[in-house]
């Protein structure tokens, strides 16, 4: 009795084993071995920061030349070098980026026109125009915090999200989650960034927020030419043109609304 069962099951095992061996050989798919090797060095967070839907499509894309070797924002220089070694090419320098909150309109500085009691997400609040007087500012319900894959954000007590820079990988998930474009990626060594996105005229901004950019263009005039230019009523910092971070100091110090946020710059008297 036992013998029969052993024989039947063993026989079945043998038949299926042979079948599987045969099909593995017959239908073998040629796959670039480099993809496997690249997958081993990737962080496998599937964040989508590179533009691909996940790490595996990115690996395939890199081998096919669709994505740059230094495309993985989470891995940074280290991973880029490893991928370059696998592919036998030279990796371009990775500019590590970090997410910043381009709004300073917290509970004290920004006027609130209404009290919102509906669905507690920024997407829902944005539908009715927000509860602040400023219709461009941070909605403060934390869609970006929810979207962050690396626990690098939390909601501050003043109603604005805070980025923990050590944890932020610059994947851009928060940028995609924000319905108002408050979140942005800047180079990790950026000395300063602008804490306002309102494209409106000075008076309309100062009516609703005491820290909003009023578009006076003073900053563009006190720094070396090309470092800061005005686009409409908002200054744009051209990080690639900034030779010495100290050059930007006067812009920060003389900004009447103190809209610039200092990241890596010492001895600034604001």
């Amino acid at each position: 009795m036992i013998l029969i069962s052993i024989l039947v099951l063993g026989g079945l095992g043998l038949v299926f084993g042979l079948f599987l061996t045969f099909s593995a050989k017959k239908f073998h798919v040629e796959r670039d071995p480099r993809i496997e090797k690249i997958l081993e060095v990737l962080p496998m967070a599937n964040c989508g920061g590179c533009g691909a839907p996940g790490c595996e499509p990115f690996a395939e894309g890199v081998v096919a030349g669709k994505y740059p070797v230094n495309g993985c924002v989470v891995g940074g220089q280290e991973v880029a070098d490893k991928i370059a070694a696998i592919l036998g090419v030279e990796a371009a320098a990775v500019v590590p980026k970090v997410a910043v909150v381009q709004c300073l309109g917290d509970r004290e500085t920004a006027k609130r026109f209404a009290e919102y009691t509906g669905i507690k997400t920024c997407k829902a609040l944005d539908l009715i125009g927000g509860d602040k007087g400023c219709v461009y500012g941070c909605l403060g319900l934390g869609d970006c915090v929810e979207a962050c894959l690396f626990d690098a954000m939390y909601m501050g007590e003043n109603g604005l999200p805070v980025v923990i820079e050590d944890k932020c990988t610059g994947c851009g998930e928060c940028v995609r989650a924000c319905p108002r474009g408050i979140m942005a990626l800047v180079p990790k060594d950026a000395p300063i960034y602008l804490g306002c996105v309102s494209p409106e005229r000075g008076k309309d901004v100062s009516d609703v927020c005491s820290r909003g950019c009023i578009g006076c263009s003073l900053c563009a005039r006190v720094v070396p030419e090309g470092n800061i230019t005005m686009e409409g009523y908002l200054p744009v910092i051209h990080y690639e043109n900034v030779k010495n971070p100290e050059d930007l100091k006067p812009a920060v110090e003389r900004c009447p609304t103190k809209t610039f946020v200092v990241r890596n710059l010492e001895n600034v008297n604001v």
Binding site: I128, G130, V135
Partner: peptide
């Protein structure tokens, strides 16, 4: 021509 409040919520 100025951006102004609109019943749809946006300016």
């Amino acid at each position: 021509i100025v951006p102004y409040y609109h019943p749809l919520g946006k300016k």
